[in-house]
């Protein structure tokens, strides 16, 4: 059975450079200002400006997704802002891949994998969190009511794609 695109679609996300920024919360606030993303990164939320999107995944952890076109400027601003302040910035561009999930069945498919409530009331657009999907970790970010970005470690992508595809097909019944 083939699902229509409006039911469920899974596609590689647009190319991004990725960095894990870790620091004490006050330092992360400094980073937010340096990147022009406000005074703080709100917990479990995405913030975007220019080429930079930041997902606050933990009190001391932010995942930065950068459009390659403007990545260097963003990184320069960040490094300048954090100069002399204790932090860790590690490139993970190749550690993980992005998958765009969309369609009317996307919530049902995800609900087969994660124990968190993905209904829009509980997981609104702009929310982002790491969670357990089946037997693999992934970062789930809702980009639209019927659209999620899933960031997973590279070697887990085939497993999660297979699981999501099967779950979406089951969700028809």
């Amino acid at each position: 059975m083939q699902l229509s695109h409006s039911e469920f679609a899974l596609a590689p996300a647009a190319e991004r450079r990725r960095f894990v920024l870790q620091a004490r919360p006050a330092t992360l606030d400094v980073a937010a200002r340096a990147l022009g993303l406000g005074d703080t990164f709100a917990m479990l939320a995405a913030a975007a400006a220019g080429a930079v999107t930041a997902l606050r995944l933990g009190p001391q952890e932010v995942l930065l997704l950068l459009d390659p076109a403007g990545a260097d400027d963003g990184l320069s601003a960040l490094r300048a802002g954090l100069a002399g302040v204790a932090h860790s910035l590690v490139e993970v561009s190749d550690r993980q891949v992005g998958l765009d999930l969309s369609g009317a069945l996307v919530e049902a498919a995800l609900a087969s994998l994660t124990s968190i409530d993905v209904a829009v009331a509980a997981f609104p657009v702009g929310m982002a969190t790491r969670t357990l999907l089946g037997k693999a970790d992934g970062v789930l970010w809702r980009t639209a009511p019927d659209r999620f970005r899933l960031e997973v470690w590279r070697s887990f992508a085939p497993y999660l794609s297979g699981l999501l595809d099967e779950a979406a097909r089951d969700a028809v019944f």
């Binding site: 995944l57 933990g58 009190p59 001391q60 952890e61 969190t129 790491r130 969670t131 357990l132 970790d137």
Partner: peptide, 8 residues
Amino acid sequence: RHAHGCNR
């Protein structure tokens, strides 16, 4: 530890 979440 929120091992599959915020890691804290």
